[in-house]
Design a protein around this nucleic acid. Structure first.
Length: 432
RNA sequence: GGUGAGAUACUCAAGUGGCCAACGAGGGCGGACUGUAAAUCCGCUGACUAUGUCUUCGAAGGUUCGAAUCCUUCUCUCACCA
């Protein structure tokens, strides 16, 4: 095999823990391996990219990736890494989420190929729903002791009350048995011998391999990748606006692109290894070039490009780059006006808006009113006066003074006026 | 239950009769610089019909020409004693 899965993950820093014998197993034959995805929302966010990419590497290495959607386990809630009991999702939401997550996974893995190592998509609800409580308790529960389950870190933490934890329901305690059974089921029905996941999944994975050993006298393997962290300690995948989603409707391609572009130097070295498929040589060259001229931010740009194209499309990337140059470059009112309405709206997607009547423009709309009273862009008239005095206000990217009046001549696409306070605060007024 | 201390703006925290819309620090915002970064420097940070006016220092009353500041009652927080 030209491509060594384990070696590949190791140099990319994506290997946290691996069970002894896993490499030998992978070297020996085409192996099926799976990762579970929780349908906690109808879209995955960029935290789920790592497991997806691991599966893609897995397939590139000639093995068979299985993506498991936790339709059943999602109904229970994984206690790993949580200090409080989770809220349960109702069936309807869950069905919607499963469909959403499934659609996204199809972007990255080809589930319809005839190849020997074609990717496969399964939903554990399909085999869990028929399982009766009695059967489950007799067939599965019998093979593991409570002592074993209690010894897991995720359980121990909650029981001993560390970190303000407040106990754990039977429901969540059962979770690891469910996930363990998934592995057993896939082992028996799909000859799946490997489970992968984030390092917080180690406990659940070992429960699975243990179950395979005891119940099926088989040998199964596990591997985890480190959880993504950022150098400044803030949470990965979050911005002020919340999660960065893979769904364009939740996080626009522009914002998605920006998230990566704004990575720190330190993080971007790390991220480009993990989130792109560039070769080791390419990445080393990039890092070297970046260190030569850090202000050009080659790493961040390449990272943002690669990931945006992978998750969205080349077209989305082009638009995001264009939008970025309008927002952050030296664009002028005429640049703005040259945009067609759709692109303009895409660029300013998510920017707060207000609607005003076009009648306001006939006499010319004064700045104080435009900023505060009519739009609530700024909190008060005083605030508006201050901002104007500070030379902080722009109309259509051009600085204005307190005596400026907005007229028909300022309209973009005959409808919009772009207000701006400082560099980053935008506000769109829609004249109808 | 008793005694003592305290409550000030987004947070911490000065102010103990007029010079108080209230020192200072942090945060936030803006400007310069810069790499859409970090650091640094400077400015702003109650409202309004604005060289003035109004409301604000736990709540309600009172004293006074004038109260964040003094008095009374109440609410809450903390400390010590039961």
């Amino acid at each position: 095999m030209a491509y060594n899965f384990v070696e590949e993950l190791k140099w990319r820093g994506m290997m946290h823990d691996i069970m002894p014998g896993t490499e030998e197993q992978l070297a020996e034959e085409v192996t099926a391996g799976y990762i579970g995805f929780d349908p906690t929302a109808d879209s995955l966010h960029i935290g789920s990219l790592i497991p997806i990419i691991v599966l893609m590497h897995f397939q590139k290495a000639g093995h068979k990736p299985i993506a498991l959607i936790g339709g059943a386990t999602g109904m229970i809630g994984d206690p790993s890494g949580k200090s409080a009991e989770r809220n349960l999702l109702d069936e309807e939401t869950l069905a919607k989420n499963v469909a959403g997550v499934k659609g996204q996974l199809e972007r990255f893995l080809d589930f319809n190929s005839d190849a020997e190592n074609a990717a496969e998509l399964v939903n554990n609800y399909d085999w869990m729903k028929e399982f009766s409580l009695i059967d489950f308790v007799r067939d599965i529960g019998k093979h593991l002791t409570v002592n074993y389950m209690m010894a897991k870190e995720s359980v121990k933490k909650r029981i001993t009350g560390e970190e303000g934890a407040d106990g754990m329901s039977f429901t969540e305690f059962t979770y690891q048995l469910f996930q363990g059974y998934d592995f057993l089921h896939l082992y028996q029905n799909k000859n799946c011998k490997l489970q992968m996941g984030g390092s917080d999944q180690w406990g659940n994975i070992t429960t699975g391999t243990e179950l395979v050993r005891r119940k099926a006298q088989g040998k199964a393997y596990g591997m985890t990748c480190p959880l993504i962290t950022k150098a400044d300690g803030t949470k990965f995948g979050k911005s002020e606006g919340g999660n960065i989603w893979l769904d364009k409707n939740r996080t626009s391609a522009y914002k998605f692109y920006q998230y990566w572009l704004n990575s720190s130097d330190e993080d971007s070295e790390n991220f480009i290894k993990k989130f792109t498929f560039l070769t080791k040589e390419e990445i080393e060259t990039l890092i070297a070039e970046h260190n030569e001229a850090p202000h050009l931010r080659l790493l961040q740009k390449r990272l943002a490009e690669e990931v945006t194209v992978m998750v969205h499309s080349q077209e989305d990337l082009d638009n995001a780059v264009k939008a970025s140059s309008i927002l952050f470059g030296n664009s002028t009112a005429s640049d703005l006006k040259s945009l067609d309405e759709q692109t303009f709206l895409d660029v300013f997607d998510g920017v707060p808006q207000a609607e005003l009547s076009k009648d306001e423009l006939t006499e010319g709309l004064d700045m104080i009113g435009a900023l505060a009273a009519k739009t609530n862009f700024l909190g008060s008239n005083s605030d508006a006066r201050r901002a104007l005095k500070e030379n902080a206000i722009s109309v259509n990217k051009e600085k204005v003074k307190e005596d400026y009046k907005i007229t028909e001549a300022d309209l973009i696409a005959n409808k919009y006026v772009l207000l701006q306070r400082g560099k980053k605060n935008y506000y769109l007024v829609n004249f109808v």
